[in-house]
Design a binder for these strands. Structure first.
Lengths: 113, 113
DNA sequence: TCCATATTTCCAGTATTATCGAAATATAAG
DNA sequence: CTTATATTTCGATAATACTGGAAATATGGA
């Protein structure tokens, strides 16, 4: 289980206009991810700003990176998001009939996503 | 569907040590919520700091408040959380066989929560 | 009305975060 | 080895956020 500190890092990473836009772009790109350059082009960010935000996202553990030739490919980390969501709703409603096995908790009224 | 701006507000609200702790306390308290005073006691925060953080959470739309006599009861807003999560994973993997009906998307490997 | 309790607002000081040009680093290709 | 491309690091400035004491507001009870 993740700690408060870890979750704050992940949330801070996402809690910024440009970084959230970057993250959602990566979510939509899926497993293949996107090179930094394409992100810069799509969101019209200067290279140093983009790099600042990408390293923040990486530091927050919500994206991963991998070099491919001259480019660096960024990917959303879906498992990290899953852990984060679980942490946010941990022991919701004091477990009071609210978490039936593998469904969404009652407090979410049957719709998580 | 919520906007980037709204989501950043909600995420910023949660992206702080004390506020995340407050929010998780409220998640665990469920529908009955908690008066500010009890939160202050549990987390050992001075009243002005607590108030600052509570209003930030409320502004971010992740908690609601309701006066009850001299106390003000705070509650986690589970629907807002649900909308936020949906926004974060919107159109994940470009919809590529990743969102079967009412299950968690494939990219989450079957476990959302 | 007067007092106690619960919470918020105000304020000033401190700390953290965002921005982006310019320079540095890494890789590839001729 | 030189040049071009992709990205990051550095550094200075500007903007935003956090903290907590003191004063203000709201409610309820004697």
């Amino acid at each position: 289980m993740i700690r408060n500190y870890t979750a704050v890092n992940a949330l801070s990473a996402l809690a910024q206009e440009h970084r959230l836009a970057i993250f959602r772009l990566l979510v939509q790109a899926g497993r293949s991810g996107l090179p930094a350059g394409q992100i810069a082009k799509k969101l019209d960010l200067p290279p140093s700003s983009l790099s600042f935000h990408l390293s923040h996202l990486k530091n927050g553990g919500v994206v991963s990176d991998e070099r491919d030739g001259r480019s660096i490919i960024y990917r959303a980390d879906f498992q990290a998001m899953n852990r984060l969501m679980a942490f946010l709703l941990e022991n919701c409603c004091a477990g009071d009939d609210c978490l039936p096995e593998d469904a969404a908790p009652d407090c979410m009224e049957g719709q998580v996503l």
